[in-house]
Structures are given as C-alpha cells and as structure tokens.
Computed example of a mutant assay.
Amino acid sequence: MDSETVHIREIETVASHKGKLLRVTFEQRRLNGEIQRREREVYDNGDSAVILPHDPHRNTVLLTRQLRLPIFLRDGTERTLEACAGKLDGALAERRIVKEMEEELGYQIAKVQRLFDLYVSPAAIMERITFFTCFYSPADRITEGGGLKEEGEDIEVVEVTLMEAASMVAAGEIVDAKTVILIQYLSDRARASQRD
C-alpha cells in the first residue's frame, strides 16, 4: 500500500456496521520534498454500480424515487430521483446491475453497456462506481419493481423523457451526482447522433 510519496503509518477502524469508517494516519512527501504527517477519516462502504436505461424510440429513461436519509437530514427532501443503483457485494458489476434493474425497476435486460468507473467523492469515500446504460422497451417489463421489502426498499419507478430529465437537473430536482453524470452522458450522445 505504501508508495514512494505516501507511507501509511496506522489504519484504525472507528466504526463498522454496513461499511467501515477508518482513521488513517500517513506521511506524504510534498512536491517540494518535505515530509508531512496527516490524518484522515475515510468511509469504505463497498463498490457499486449504476445504470440509466434509455428507450431510443421514445427517448425515455427510467429513474427511481426513494428516501435517501442523508438528503432528508440535510434538505428535508423525502424522496429523491436517481438512477437505479446497488452495491456489488462481491458480484461482477454487470451481473449485479442487471439484478438491480429487475428488483428496483421491474425490467429484465440481457445486455448492458459499461461506460466507465468513477469515484464520486474521493476525498473521503472509497466507493468506486461502475456506470452503465442499456436499451429498454415496455416489452422488457416483467414486474412492478419497487425493490426488496426485506432490505427496506420502497422504490417508485419513474419514466420521463431524456429532455425532461435534463430539465430536472437544471431545475435542481435531480441532485444525485451519478444520475446527473448519466443524464449528461446520454444527452451528449443523443445530440452527437442527431448531428451525424
């Protein structure tokens, strides 16, 4: 774990339930050569995957609306619009996101397109998120979705046009970073294909 410029001195688990809150003491060689001792708290809640399904014929996307406690505690917003996502829990990202789509959205999709991996908040959170999109149609719907009750999920499936989703971002109705990234990505791709 050590490198030429970073040396880990101590990792202490401060809290451990669904994830781990770690206190890390390390030394870092600064650009000027000076050694600086630092301490940071890092949250490791596992890697995840996210997907924004797109129906190119109707130009629609599928979103979820559900309680996100940190947003509620901060802003009082009870239900947040976001893309379908889930923790990997050791599974391959492609397999896990297909299962999440069935559980949360009620759609069965055989093929997804992996886009990229990103760290959304790398200053304090270790989570790496794999981003996906896929094509879907109403014929792919197999259940009402809604998530798994035993996991506390109570998810509303929301279908809007890609243009409506982009307007919701601009209006501050969609505030989840991974969802904004996917909407922007699909919007850019749609504009590029219209020019071709």
Rank of each mutant, 00 (worst) to 15 (best):
F26V: 07
F26Q: 08
F26G: 07
F26E: 09
E27M: 08
E27I: 06
Q28F: 06
R30I: 05
N32T: 10
N32S: 10
G33V: 04
G33E: 03
G33A: 03
E34W: 02
E34C: 04
I35Y: 06
I35K: 09
Q36F: 07
E39D: 06
R40K: 14
E41W: 09
E41I: 09
E41C: 11
E41V: 09
E41Q: 14
Y43K: 05
Y43I: 14
Y43E: 13
N45H: 12
G46M: 10
G46P: 13
D47C: 01
A49C: 15
A49L: 03
V50D: 07
V50H: 01
V50N: 08
I51A: 06
L52Y: 05
L52T: 06
P53Q: 01
P53S: 03
P53K: 00
H54P: 07
H54I: 06
D55C: 07
D55E: 04
D55Q: 00
P56C: 08
P56S: 13
P56Y: 04
R58M: 06
R58Y: 02
N59G: 07
T60Y: 00
T60V: 05
L62T: 00
L62C: 03
L63R: 00
L63E: 08
R65N: 10
Q66M: 12
L67S: 15
L67H: 15
L67C: 12
L67N: 14
L67Q: 13
L67E: 14
R68P: 07
L69W: 09
L69Y: 10
P70A: 11
P70I: 10
I71D: 12
F72W: 13
F72N: 12
F72V: 12
L73E: 15
L73H: 10
T77I: 15
T77M: 07
T77W: 08
T77G: 05
E78T: 15
E78C: 10
R79F: 09
R79V: 12
R79A: 13
R79Q: 15
L81C: 10
E82S: 09
A83G: 13
A83R: 04
A83W: 06
G86I: 02
G86C: 05
K87P: 11
K87D: 11
K87L: 11
L88R: 02
L88P: 07
L88W: 03
D89F: 01
D89P: 03
G90V: 11
G90T: 11
L92N: 13
L92A: 15
A93E: 12
A93F: 03
E94L: 01
R95A: 09
R95P: 02
R96H: 10
I97R: 00
V98F: 00
V98G: 02
K99P: 04
K99R: 14
E100L: 00
M101R: 01
M101P: 11
E102G: 02
E103Y: 04
E103P: 09
E104P: 02
E104L: 00
L105W: 00
L105P: 06
L105M: 05
L105I: 03
